[in-house]
Nucleic acid binder design. Structure first.
Length: 403
DNA sequence: GTCAATTCACATGAAAGAGACCACGGTCTAGTG
DNA sequence: CTAGACCGTGGTCTCTTTCATGTGAATTGACGA
């Protein structure tokens, strides 16, 4: 009986008309055939890496811009095109794309080099070898390849922040030792100021050329949305004015096109689940709330126990009082929670860092302020609406075994 | 009233340790011819 | 004789602790008007 119900549901599901034509188009890893409003940047990139086709070393390139401004897309697009030409003319060019933000892939020197070597077909263990050794393996295999290698390092700021700028120095220097191959680096970064903090030597060799991607304005986002929506949804699904609202929302968030696309995709999914045949503003609002909720829930669930305990302490204090919370207070409560749960309490030093990290993930807001005679501390507050707070509270209580 | 010194309550840095993982090479053991 | 099991060594990585140093403004107290 029950089974029949489910089967029936699935069958109906298949028959039911989807409002999507091709949902893939709205997903963040989709790369469209043309990239509107980025012609200048793409041309610029093309000019810079074009010498590769004559096997001259292209200048190292540095690309900046906020998230969702099409940096990665443009770089990938241009390098793909150049690869097509290269393949046609049998020019030995290789392009490696590495996202430095992905944990466990390329967030340390060792892992980055190991990943590069792996892409050259070498098998490198995840750990256990001296970094020096991995360098040698990488270096030898590049030299044997007799190729022009373009390495794209996406979110390079994350790598530098975690592993220092020595890597870049070494990578740029490797070139001088290679006899048969050439390496060119393309760095992509969200962080506009991070270059100021790296070693000047590295800076000058790495950013021989720089391109800045300005944020999209609302009109540009609108046209991007319109184009993708045309491909993704069937006709007459999207309500009048929805695109405008979505674009306005994304423009407010520093012109993040990725966000706008996600918003409209989720709105579509919600509408579909409700069995509606068109997407209206109401769905957009729901989508916005859902994205935020999912994001926070993800963050909270994936935190280690110690972070959860700290967050729980903050939440507890936040519930009791309305004014801002101080580090010392959090630490006291945190210690109590630890003894309740049977967790070994960490030092205040560590908790200070934990709080800073929670701030980074956006779930709390912590600002360092000086209270004059009464010291210097972080003022902490929750940066989420209260109905989500309750939810977090529940998740944490469960996760910590306090429920 | 003004101004520099003081002081608080942490923030922030640096270094180093602990424990988990892992590869490599050498040694031991048991099975095979 | 050889394949496989089993150490010990040396390496990375992450999370912490320990020790040291830094910091911004309310408060204090001396000083001069």
């Amino acid at each position: 009986m029950k089974d029949n119900n489910i089967t029936g549901f699935f069958e109906k599901f298949i028959k039911k008309d989807s409002i999507f034509k091709e949902k893939r188009v709205l997903q963040s890893n989709y790369s469209p055939d043309n990239i509107p409003h980025r012609e200048n940047e793409i041309n610029h990139i093309a000019q810079i890496i074009a010498p590769a086709l004559k096997l001259d070393k292209p200048s190292n390139l540095f690309v900046y811009g906020k998230t969702g401004t099409g940096k990665t897309l443009s770089v990938k697009y241009t390098t793909n095109k150049i690869m097509e030409v290269a393949k046609d003319k049998k020019i030995p060019i290789k392009v490696f794309y590495i996202n430095c933000k992905l944990k466990k892939v390329a967030d340390t020197e060792y892992r980055l080099i190991a990943e590069l070597a792996r892409k050259l077909g070498k098998s490198i263990p995840a750990t256990g070898l001296p970094t020096e050794e991995v360098y040698k393996i990488f270096y030898n295999s590049v030299d044997k390849e007799k190729t022009l290698l373009v390495i794209i390092l996406d979110e390079i700021d994350q790598l530098i922040k975690k592993a220092g700028d020595e890597i870049l120095y070494n990578l740029t220097r490797i070139n001088e030792d290679l006899d048969n191959s050439i390496i060119t680096l393309i760095g992509i970064s969200n962080d506009l100021v991070f270059v100021d903090n790296i070693d000047p030597r590295v800076k000058s060799s790495l950013s021989e050329e720089e391109i800045v991607f300005p944020p999209y304005n609302a009109l540009q986002i609108q046209s991007i949305l319109t184009e993708r929506i045309k491909k993704a949804f069937k006709e007459d699904i999207i309500e009048q004015g929805l695109i405008e609202k979505c674009a306005a929302y994304a423009a407010r968030e520093h012109g993040d096109a990725r966000r706008a696309l996600e918003l409209i995709r989720v709105a579509g999914e919600i509408a579909e689940r409700e069995g509606k045949q068109n997407v209206v503003i109401k769905h957009l609002d729901k989508a916005e709330a859902k994205i935020e909720r999912d994001r926070i829930q993800d963050i909270v669930c994936s935190q280690p126990k110690q972070f959860q305990a700290t967050l729980y302490a903050i939440l507890k204090l936040n519930k009791e009082r309305n004014d801002s919370i101080l580090t010392g207070e959090v630490y006291e409560i945190y210690k109590k929670i630890c003894s309740n749960v049977g967790l070994r309490p960490l030092t205040q030093r560590r908790i200070s860092d934990v709080i800073a990290e929670l701030d980074m993930s956006g779930i709390i807001t912590a600002k360092v302020t000086s209270k004059g005679r009464y010291g210097r501390t972080r003022e902490i507050s929750m940066s989420v609406p209260s109905h989500i707070k309750d939810k977090i509270n529940k998740i944490l209580a469960e996760g910590l075994g306090l429920a």
